[in-house]
Design a binder for these strands. Structure first.
Lengths: 88, 88
DNA sequence: TGATATTTGTACGTATGTATT
DNA sequence: TAATACATACGTACAAATATC
């Protein structure tokens, strides 16, 4: 059997109550909180996230926009999206 | 000859230095300042603006997002975009 | 009550541009 | 010289809420 490392909350349900971009934002926020990506380091690229979660680019970008609003990440054009340090 | 009611700043130049959505945001902000649409009233719909300025919907939506950030308008889903009152 | 039109929201696709690697 | 990564801009389709008839 497969070990489900992260649980069902780490998959997007297109028919779910929440919109796909909201689900994805929640997943990514949880992964940041869990330490999958450390502060000041890059999260996966838009293309990578598209492939990993099988969604379109606009959905990835909306999800990242939510994380930016929440102050969890900072997007740097042509570089990538960085996890914000909790404090300095 | 044609009377140019608003001047060249009211047309979008796809080759301009600024991006089209930035230009459109500037145009709409100027029209609001000029009183083309009064406070608490609707500005034209996305479809209308697409046709009037010959741009795609994403460009209109980005421009409106700029106006929202500037506190000039409020978007109400399924209703439209309202000009914010200057004060109450 | 029901049907239709309008309007914004979501989600997909493609292409091109620009800065970085 | 590419390859990568985000930004802009176009298109389409469908959903949901509102407004009107």
């Amino acid at each position: 059997v497969e070990t489900d490392l992260y649980g069902p909350d780490d998959r997007i349900d297109p028919q779910g109550a929440d919109h796909m971009y909201v689900q994805l934002a929640g997943i990514l926020a949880a992964r940041i909180a869990r330490g999958d990506w450390e502060p000041r380091r890059l999260i996966p690229s838009e293309k990578h996230l598209m492939q990993e979660y099988d969604v379109g680019r606009s959905t990835v970008r909306q999800a990242v926009a939510v994380l930016v609003e929440r102050g969890l990440v900072v997007v740097v054009p042509q570089r990538g999206t960085y996890v914000k340090p909790t404090e300095d």
